[in-house]
Design a protein around this nucleic acid. Structure first.
Length: 354
DNA sequence: AAACCGGGGCC
DNA sequence: GGCCCAGGTTT
């Protein structure tokens, strides 16, 4: 038995989430709002996104405002949200859209934008422009694999799941409300068809769910086992001067934490650093003291960082030549730092008070 | 196809 | 400690 689009939409009309980027019922969402939220929501929870989304709209009310901003301003506003390539692509995309006079309304045009892949293009097309496409995110993969009892493991099953998901909006009811239908699938996955202990008894699609009928819904989607996460080690240096400035530098544009500020330090390697080894990477000759230890989990490794702290009268003036060093106020806005570096500064800061 | 790319909340 | 999150890009 095919699931009823009308039943899902009735459920959505009663239980839809109110979110800052969503249009009020019966209204059409602003494409800029939809796009900005979708980029932020990539691999990121709604709760984590909301304060960043509000801050961005405050700083950059329109896509033209974002396009006019300096890259550093955008990166600083993104700091803490993670996956920093998103921020660079976001800015590049804003400039392309501003130059073109607005967002493309079709899938091909959306897919050509930097940072916009198959999912995000479909989400914008459906939510902002009412096109009858089904954006397949983690929620929709979960709902679909359960509804059709697709038991093959991700990520190999991704294309099969997407093919089934694309059939969900075949009815006239779904296509007449493409924006609501897409968001209804999200809310179903986020509210009822959850990863653990789905609330099948409340689900508008319970009578057509093969996963529920077979008693395997909660175990879907199956996932292939993941490789173990290795451990790496690094040392970073918290150097302050007499006026309370902290020495920072900018990371390379590409790679991990690309383009973000950091405390100077060693590279991150498989084996721990000894103190004498690490001091060769110190940004100045000073009375370095062990000042704490920080652990941080990245997607594909765990990092342990030893912090060394020292205070000097003034920063060495060789810094500009030796590493593109940047200086910032200590009471600055830690908000411009990625989370790892916020932890490092916080861990080493007491040692700078002496 | 696989690897790379953050961070936080929850169990 | 593992899993999950409104994934995209690069190799």
């Amino acid at each position: 038995m095919l699931p009823s689009s009308a039943a899902l939409l009735r459920w959505y009309d009663r239980h839809r989430r109110t979110l800052p980027w969503r249009a009020l019922p019966g209204r059409t969402a602003d494409p800029y709002h939809v796009w900005l939220s979708e980029i932020m929501l990539q691999q990121t929870t709604v709760a984590a996104v909301i304060p960043y989304y509000r801050r961005f709209l405050d700083l950059f009310p329109t896509v033209e405002d974002l396009a006019r901003a300096e890259p550093d301003t955008v990166m600083a506003a993104w700091a803490g949200l993670g996956y920093y390539a998103r921020a660079r692509n976001l800015h590049a995309c804003s400039r392309a859209v501003a130059a073109a006079g607005g967002f493309p309304r079709d899938m091909a045009g959306l897919l050509a934008l930097p940072g916009v892949g198959a999912y995000t293009a479909a989400a914008i097309a459906a939510i902002a422009f009412g096109q009858p496409v089904v954006p397949v995110d983690g929620n929709v993969e979960r709902v679909t694999s359960r509804l059709f009892a697709l038991a093959d493991p991700l990520p190999g099953s991704r294309k099969t799941i997407a093919r089934h998901a694309a059939t969900l909006n075949a009815s006239a009811a779904a296509r007449a409300r493409a924006s609501d239908f897409a968001q209804a699938l999200f809310d179903l996955g986020a509210g009822l068809c959850t990863p653990r202990q789905p609330a099948c008894a409340l689900c508008p699609w319970r009578d057509s769910c093969a996963g529920l009928r077979q008693g395997i819904a909660a175990s879907l989607p199956a996932k292939a086992p993941r490789a173990a996460r290795p451990v790496r080690h690094g040392v970073h240096f918290l150097l302050t001067d007499a006026s309370g400035h902290v020495l920072l530098r900018r990371r390379p544009e590409k790679g991990l934490l690309g383009g973000m500020l950091e405390l100077p330090g060693t590279d991150w390697r498989d084996t721990p650093w000894t103190g004498s080894e690490a001091l060769a990477f110190a940004p100045a000759d000073a009375d370095w003291r062990a000042a704490g230890r920080v652990s941080h989990v990245f997607t594909h490794f765990t990092l342990h960082v030893d912090i060394y702290a020292a205070r000097v009268g003034h920063f060495p003036n060789t810094m500009a030549r030796t590493g593109g060093m940047a200086v910032a106020h200590a009471d600055l806005d830690m908000s411009a730092l990625p989370s790892l570096m916020r932890k490092c500064v916080a861990a080493g800061w007491p040692a700078t008070e002496a």
